[in-house]
Amino acid sequence: MLILTRKLGEAIRIGDDIEVKIVGIAGDQIKLGISAPRDIDVNRAEIYEAIQKENSQATQADLSEELISELKAMKREKK
């Protein structure tokens, strides 16, 4: 992990396309401004994790439905 110290108004660059800027400081919170191309998703960590969990559950449900369909098709073929 890279740890940097930045002041209000200062920024960091990630590659050529992403800039993270300190836009506000209030007590123990900071406000970040993130400039990135539209095709790059930028989410808070807890939102990202929730999306990943939902995608995993959806994939498992799709696989279960597909397996059930295949088993039913195999059962019909035996008749």
Score class of each variant (00 low, 15 high):
M1P: 12
L2T: 12
L2F: 09
L4Q: 09
T5W: 01
R6G: 08
K7G: 06
K7A: 09
L8W: 02
L8H: 00
G9Q: 03
E10S: 08
E10P: 02
A11N: 13
A11H: 06
I12C: 05
R13F: 04
G15R: 15
D16H: 07
E19M: 14
V20H: 00
V20R: 00
K21C: 11
K21Q: 12
K21M: 12
V23I: 08
G24Y: 05
I25W: 02
A26N: 10
D28Y: 01
Q29W: 03
I30S: 10
I30E: 03
I30Y: 02
K31P: 09
A36V: 09
A36T: 06
P37T: 13
P37V: 13
P37E: 11
R38V: 15
R38A: 15
D39F: 03
I40H: 00
I40Q: 00
D41P: 01
N43V: 06
Y48I: 07
E49T: 03
E49H: 06
A50F: 01
I51C: 02
N55Q: 06
N55A: 04
S56V: 11
Q57F: 04
A58L: 15
A58T: 05
A58P: 00
A61P: 00
A61H: 08
A61M: 11
L63H: 08
S64F: 11
I68H: 12
S69I: 11
L71T: 04
L71Q: 06
K72F: 13
A73T: 12
M74W: 14
E77Q: 15
K78G: 07
